[in-house]
Design a protein around this nucleic acid. Structure first.
Length: 420
DNA sequence: TCTGGGGTCCTAGGACCC
DNA sequence: TCTGGGGTCCTAGGACCC
């Protein structure tokens, strides 16, 4: 048995926590660069604001309905997420953290009447201790727990907890469940399924997995089995180490010069190195890419990337930069307005299992000590007090974040002020 | 004027091996 | 006139997730 604990409109709920005046009002949170809608309050959903629409397309709607708009504040959301995970971990036999706002719980040893109680208790505790509302869906597979969660979110009568293994009219419920709302099924796949006569979740549950495998693929075939109650998707208590990692950004202001582009790529490289070192990993290869704005059809377009293999896997920022800077120089072309660039690292392995290269003459022990001091100082003094010179001082290309709330929980200077 | 960021898994096809 | 069989590994691209 699995439970899926999912925060309700997570980013919006985080914003409301320190700003109760927006309770009951339409609220949206935008993606990086204030581009698209990534979270909506129920009131905003009711206005017809869709997920992932560009903010500029709904400007009138926002103004007319006085929708409160926020830039994303990942420092705040990440911190609140950690607090919630801590509570779930304390209360549960086993937890798999699935995303910033979702965790699966394995309900080993919790019998039927106690499963819903487990859900209500967890929900109450998270609301009381952190202040974020969550919904709990329970089922015999992760996919069914997802289904249950989805229903409990939409139908208020469940009071935020639904044990799908304990409902009599499950066939009726699945028949009313849209294909697109099933975990792992997108509009494209849903269209294909309708093409072979499968209209809803009940039809899919009743399909033959082998036939689905032949018509579509093994991923959807597994979904069918999961809907039938046969677990196919493993529960992963210990997160698998990452295989790739990336740092990419759209620019707040389009970049036209090589010197600005180098600043940006150096900044992304530096951040990528920090991520590797924090995970105690090294990378075998790097890709650097840049491109113009594909939405500006009339402007000249250019997309390019360069992939380089390191002589020895590394997580040393100085060494990473010695590859990413020449790479960006080699693909940069004058005469274009660049919208986005990034650094992607491939072939991540544990930093203590590096295959040495007999032609390598670098003093890696010394370099590692330097990076460790670098990270230590930055973590103690906050932000990026120590930086590499190539990352620049102006950074005019930086993200647009016009409506960002404060780091209420992680910076003393940004604590909430209360007037009495 | 304005359109995010960071991942995973699967499959097909090419290159190469004995 | 005639040229095998059975593998693995790698990569790019597609599809999907939050």
């Amino acid at each position: 048995m699995y439970a899926l604990v999912d925060c309700n409109n997570f980013y919006v709920s985080c914003e409301r926590l320190f700003n109760p005046s927006i309770e009951g009002k339409p609220v949206i949170v935008l993606s990086n660069n204030d581009g698209c809608v990534v979270a909506r309050s129920n009131e905003a959903k009711a206005l017809g604001i869709a997920m992932a629409v560009p903010a500029f397309e709904i400007k009138d709607l926002i103004q007319k309905n006085n929708v409160r708009v926020f830039s994303s504040n990942y420092t705040l959301y990440g911190d609140l997420s950690n607090r919630i995970i801590e509570i779930i971990r304390e209360e549960s036999p086993a937890i798999e953290v699935y995303s910033i706002d979702e965790s699966f719980v394995q309900l080993e040893g919790i019998s039927l009447p106690n499963r819903a109680y487990f859900g209500y208790r967890l929900r109450k505790r998270i609301k009381q201790w952190v202040g974020i509302p969550v919904t709990v869906g329970i089922g015999t597979t992760k996919t069914l727990a997802k289904v249950a969660n989805h229903i409990a979110k939409k139908q208020k009568e469940w009071d935020g907890v639904l044990d799908f293994s304990n409902v009599a009219n499950w066939e009726e419920i699945l028949a009313a469940f849209e294909l697109e709302d099933i975990w792992g099924i997108n509009v494209r796949t849903a269209r294909k399924l309708r093409g072979i006569g499968i209209q809803n979740a009940l039809d899919l549950r009743n399909a033959d997995p082998r036939r689905i495998h032949d018509y579509l693929n093994v991923v959807i075939a597994r979904t069918v089995s999961e809907l039938q109650g046969y677990p196919c998707i493993p529960f992963e208590q210990d997160p698998m180490p990452k295989k790739n990692t990336a740092v990419t950004r759209s620019f707040g202001k389009e970049v036209k010069t090589l010197s600005e582009m180098k600043e940006a790529v150096a900044t992304f490289t530096s951040r990528a190195g920090e991520k590797l070192r924090a995970a105690k990993q090294v990378a075998k290869e790097v890709t650097v890419f840049l491109h113009t704005n594909p939405f500006r059809k009339e402007a000249p377009q250019y997309y390019n990337g360069k992939r380089v293999r390191f002589p020895v896997p590394t997580n040393d920022t100085k060494e990473l930069l010695s590859f990413t800077i020449p790479a960006i120089e080699s693909i940069f072309r004058e005469g274009y307005s660049y919208k986005k660039a990034g650094v992607m690292l491939w072939g991540l392995i544990p930093s203590d299992s590096i295959q040495q290269n007999i032609f390598d003459s670098t003093d890696r022990k010394k370099a590692a000590k330097l990076m460790s001091a670098f990270d230590g100082i930055n973590s103690e003094y906050g932000g990026n007090i120590l930086r590499f010179g190539v990352t620049g001082t102006q950074q005019v290309w930086k993200l647009r974040q016009m409506m960002k709330s404060k780091k209420y929980t992680t910076r003393f200077e940004e604590l909430l002020n209360i007037k009495i």
